[in-house]
Design a binder for these strands. Structure first.
Length: 178
DNA sequence: TGAATGATCACG
DNA sequence: GTGATCATTCAT
């Protein structure tokens, strides 16, 4: 089942955890690639210094202030695309970064693997029409299988760098390296 | 540990 | 306009 928009219009931490074990699905032509999400990170509110929204609304980050279930893709380090899904109610800036799927252990690696670029920015994730969507779990994920950890690559974020806003499936080999 | 590599943001 | 920075990855 495809996850509906209402799934994303909730607490970002809840969405980040519940996305683990769900499937990120990409259709290219008539070929469908279905990959299990194994690692996510939450970026929550304008006070989160690690979030792009921490310095107010800009052209790049205004998508984070928009409707839940919207795709936020941005380009960084001159070579990498990152895939995020906007969460929570309109005007509250928050999103979940998809950090790893089973075949790709890192946020830039999975966008390369699934050929996701900035043309997906601002599109909805809760429909198949854009050839990128997320389907619900096919197995039970127990709370004991979910590890909660510090986010990666945000040492500049002062008191927010130690927030345990990263989640991954325990012992999964595709979780990104530290 | 540092290079690659370019969009974005703050500043003036 | 300009310069610093960056939600990373890979090779040294």
């Amino acid at each position: 089942m495809i996850l509906p928009q209402s799934f994303y219009n909730r607490s970002t931490l809840k969405v980040a955890q519940e996305l683990l074990g769900c499937f990120l699905v990409r259709q290219i032509g008539n070929k469908i690639t279905k990959t299990k999400i194994v690692e996510t990170e939450a970026y929550i509110g304008h006070k989160d210094k690690a979030s792009h929204a921490s310095r107010g609304r800009t052209t790049r980050n205004e998508i984070m202030f928009g409707e839940a279930g919207t795709i936020y893709v941005y380009f960084t380090y001159g070579m990498h695309y990152m895939l995020n899904i906007v969460t929570e109610k309109k005007e509250y800036p928050a999103a979940v970064l998809i950090r790893a799927v089973e075949e790709a252990s890192g946020p830039a690696k999975l966008t390369k693997f699934l050929k996701i670029d900035k043309t997906f920015n601002t599109l909805p994730i809760y429909t198949k029409k854009n050839h990128l969507w997320i389907e619900s779990r096919e197995e039970v994920i127990r709370p004991s299988q979910i590890v909660r950890a510090k986010r990666v690559g945000i040492n500049y974020a002062e008191e927010y760098k130690d927030k345990l806003w990263r989640f991954y499936i325990k012992d999964n080999k595709s979780v990104s390296k530290k």
